[in-house]
Computed example of a mutant assay.
Amino acid sequence: MLNLTYIYRLKLNQQQSQTYDAWLETSRRVWNFALGERKDWYNSRSCRIDACRINCEYIISADAPRPTFASQCLALTQARKTNPNLREAHSQMLQQVLRRLEKAFIGMWESGRGFPRFKKQGRMRSLLFPQLGVNPILGSKVKLPGVGWVKMRLSRPIPDGFVAKQAQVVKKASGWYVMLMLQANVDVPNFVPHGQPIGIDIGLKSFLATSSGEQIARPQFFVDLQCKLKLLQQRVSHKKLGSNNWRKAVAKVSRLYEHIYNTRKDFHFKLAHKLCDQVGMIFVEDLNFKAWAKGMFSKHTLDAGFGEFFSILEWVCCQRGVYFAKVNPNGTSQICPNCNHHTGKKDLSERIHCCGECGFQTDRDVASAMVVMQRGLAAVGHTVSQP
């Protein structure tokens, strides 16, 4: 079973836009109510029964069960009978809001994430519809729950044999978009190592360096527009909170952030396709980018988006039939790729690799990329094939 997600821009009319805006607000209220119910239950168990605070305390019956996804879905069904706003909204869409809240708590328990937070007005931006009707796509139109047929900008055609299973409508600063999950009953092939290999080393001076000696300059997506962003944010702070001029200024900031995101993602996709055009195997380092984002180069690391690039590169390799693998990153800059001699730790200012044993000299990042390629080939038991 193969799943693909295609994103298209929607052309909603005024009535359709108002309907989805109302559903976003309803979803936000459902999220906040369900989160508040869970938070009150946890706070009522946060202290001993003989050590409650004098001024205030959450008091819930001791035999009250912990709110779960199932219990809150049942309560939502009962509330829809009396609340007209809940009755007008799509039932499965509201259930998905509760499911997302459940996943947020699971992420907090298992992955160490923070406690889920309440959403203020305008923070809920997506509506997930887990089921679509029969033949929901007709040409450049898609049939969505609550609004019927909607025109969309068909930037690329739907692949033959794929069926739209679910849709997620997203509101961005530039307009409304739909993310269609397409599904086909086909087997995904497992690509074996083949063709010419290449190793990739990422850095801060250059975006990446390859084992073939190529170095890609690092675009500064956020840094280049930081002054403009600062100016727009200052204009927001000078407007009266909640006024029309304040909303217009906030929209300009949102559009600039979206522009930065789009340019970064476009660069990642183009670079990934360029790399796949050259080789049949790509090896990268298995790095902890969360730790990088907390270091002294956090701004530059987040601006480059290395983690997102590796995810995109892996996906493009799967689509292009290129073998992709991650290798151990420890000590890649301390080993000579020519004689495997351990050269010792280098300072960040030392940009040239010079081996004291064999005299091999090259750029530091290129040498690390060559070591990455050698480790990848050793892991798959493959030898370099001559072009």
Rank of each mutant, 00 (worst) to 15 (best):
F129Q: 00
L132M: 11
G133Q: 13
G133I: 15
G133T: 15
G133H: 12
G133W: 08
V134P: 09
I137E: 00
L138Q: 14
L138C: 10
G139F: 01
S140M: 12
S140I: 10
K141E: 14
V142C: 10
K143R: 07
L144N: 12
L144I: 04
G146H: 08
G146I: 08
G146N: 09
V147D: 08
G148L: 15
W149P: 13
W149I: 03
W149Q: 03
V150Q: 02
V150P: 04
K151E: 03
K151S: 13
R153G: 08
L154M: 12
L154R: 13
S155G: 04
S155L: 06
S155A: 06
S155I: 00
R156Q: 14
P157D: 13
P159E: 13
P159K: 07
D160G: 11
F162Y: 13
V163H: 04
V163P: 01
K165R: 12
K165N: 10
Q166D: 04
A167H: 11
A167E: 03
A167T: 15
V169F: 08
K172E: 15
K172L: 14
K172N: 10
A173S: 00
A173G: 02
A173I: 01
A173C: 00
A173Q: 08
A173K: 02
S174G: 05
S174T: 14
G175C: 08
G175Y: 00
G175K: 01
G175H: 00
W176M: 10
V178K: 13
L180Q: 00
L180A: 00
M181G: 06
M181F: 06
M181L: 11
M181P: 00
M181H: 01
L182P: 04
A184I: 05
V186Q: 13
D187P: 06
V188C: 14
V188L: 15
N190F: 04
N190C: 09
F191Y: 12
P193F: 03
P193Q: 12
H194N: 04
H194M: 03
G195Q: 01
G195K: 00
G195Y: 01
Q196L: 15
Q196F: 13
Q196V: 11
P197R: 03
I198R: 15
I198T: 11
I198G: 06
I198D: 04
I198S: 11
G199Q: 02
G199C: 01
G199I: 05
G199P: 09
I200G: 07
